[in-house]
Design a protein around this nucleic acid. Structure first.
Lengths: 319, 319
DNA sequence: TAGAAGTATCGAAACGTTTCTATTTTCCAG
DNA sequence: CTGGAAAATAGAAACGTTTCGATACTTCTA
């Protein structure tokens, strides 16, 4: 492995001169810089990240921790973050599970964006003692050292629910995701507000865990116990809605004649379903960009405005 | 930021003792080790990754470079790789685009898995001079320093085509992805072999680029120019097939009555389409595990067997 | 033409670890 | 007790950079 020493030897100059030349320091005249760069390229030298990171005490990287690569929601978000980071000369690394823990603890990046519920609040607060900035996406942590950015769930769900009510639905049920998680809480509160404002009471509340599987189970539970069905399922996300739709359809129910259903997130699949699922669309790419911008601003300790990402209600055929 | 020095000071011992204690070296008696660990935890010390990586000349990380987070194919693959890596005490980082380049060049990992066509063969060979092992997934590079692992495309596509022919289809067309890319080449050759073995000649060859959009364009091209249609489209992947299906259906064609169609990859969406798309399913999770195992083996310079991942033909309703 | 004022270059410290080698302490057999 | 081995601890070099401060060489300026 070629090191800066080898380059210096080959260029018959000192290590510091090589370093300055390679980093475009103005104190090295252009012709020398060019010569040194040529030699470096020739022997295939590229600075060791580890050494540089150690000395500079920064990595020029941002870590994004997500709960899994499967979630249909992440990809545009990641693309958005990456886009903005690249634009500012930063590198993005993505991790899941306990890899994220390790990476965070050993400070493998200059900042981190957390979209992984599996990392506990305490862990995060603990890590934030040695490592900043940390931006959390999927919850609120009221701790000075952590920055929260969340989706505007409440208003969008309020609007969606209002739309549903306007269509004449009365027996409306809510399907929770993981109950005490930020996204669920705020979506639920938007739903509730709309119901209250219209003087309606909630028909029933089911609780799932944001997965399709949990939607399937809720539907099966209703079916197996011959429970009375709502005329409308307002779900905290698309995946649960899909689980319910699929199961009910298999059992002969037809949507929206027998009941209506709505989701949240507007994942790609939702547009392909039959009927197409009504949902709340969030521009995750823009959202990602704005997350990256915030991270960068926090890094430079600039002032910044708190951002919320708005959701857009997409009414389709499922109610 | 607490360093090992601070721990040493607090524990009234030398730096080396702390290091040994924290790394469970047997030369430190248990009680001392416990004491030092407690102190370290107390002052919130965690070793700097950069310093450790520099000294140890290894990072305990594997980099996976993918072309984008959107591809429906990646997620199980990544989960599989991650699963196996974790099991062996390694950390996984994922990157896209030029972030991958940087990460690779500065040797931010102990090895890399490449599933990103945007990184050129030359770049890869160049990087492999300073950085190994490198495992490429989406092509074949015949260079001693790079290890290729690919999906068993040929046989699976052969089987699928045979199945199609058995159903009596005659006017069969092939829809290429990016033409000279490994996956396309091998899928095509499997298709061709089956056609030849059955004494059939290919009705037509269209060429797309693996995206849904390119499928849409192929369909539009046929429609707009009133070209004669094949009775069967054999597509190099699901996404193009979906583009064709969608466009044709919008224009009144019904599948499989008017024509049949098949894909490759069996992405999640395919099972939800109407009609459900016949495709070749690859167990990407297992595939990922086997990639990680190979990487680890290469790291330890152990002997290993070359792995190919088999595809399973899923005949559904689209032909 | 002496000195000042730039240029171009270099030497060495530092970043925070690991680990080799050396030193001190402990313990036990004789 | 004492000598010496074993156990515990410490010192210092090294990993590959960046960057501060110093030095040498030019080129002006008066």
């Amino acid at each position: 492995m070629a090191t800066i020493k080898d380059v210096a030897k080959a260029a018959l100059c000192s290590i510091s001169t090589v370093s300055y030349a390679l980093n475009n320091d103005k104190r090295i005249p252009d012709v020398t810089a060019k010569r040194i760069k040529a030699i470096a390229a020739d022997i295939g030298y590229f600075p060791s990240g580890a050494a540089r990171n150690l000395k500079k005490r920064s990595t020029n990287r941002i870590l994004v921790a997500i709960s899994d690569f499967g979630g249909p929601v992440y990809h545009e978000l990641l693309d958005g973050i990456h886009y903005q980071l690249m634009k500012n000369g930063y590198t993005m690394i993505v991790s899941t599970g306990s890899s994220s823990d390790t990476l965070l603890k050993e400070r493998s990046a200059d900042g981190a964006v957390i979209a992984d519920i599996h990392i506990s609040d305490e862990t995060l607060v603990q890590i934030a003692k040695n490592f900043r900035p940390i931006i959390v996406l999927d919850r609120r942590i009221e701790d000075g050292s952590i920055y929260n950015m969340t989706i505007e769930n409440h208003d969008a769900m309020y609007e969606m629910t209002k739309e549903i009510i306007a269509r004449g639905y009365q027996k409306i049920a809510f399907v929770h995701g993981v109950k005490d998680v930020y996204d669920n809480l705020t979506r639920y509160s938007g739903f509730l507000k709309a119901m209250e404002d219209s003087g309606l009471s909630v028909f029933h509340e089911y609780v799932g865990n944001f997965t399709k599987q949990s939607g399937i189970e809720i539907a099966k539970h209703i079916l197996n116990n011959h429970l009375e069905m709502p005329k409308m399922f307002v779900c905290a996300n698309d995946e649960m809605a899909i689980g319910i739709m699929e199961t009910m359809q298999k059992n002969g129910f037809v949507i929206p004649q027998d009941f209506g259903i709505s989701g949240f997130d507007d994942i790609e699949l939702s547009g392909y379903l039959n009927p197409r699922l009504s949902s709340v669309k969030v521009n995750h790419f823009e959202w990602g960009k704005s997350i990256a911008k915030t991270t960068l601003k926090l890094l430079n300790l600039e002032k910044f405005d708190i951002q919320k990402q708005k959701g857009e209600v997409m009414v389709r055929d499922s109610f």
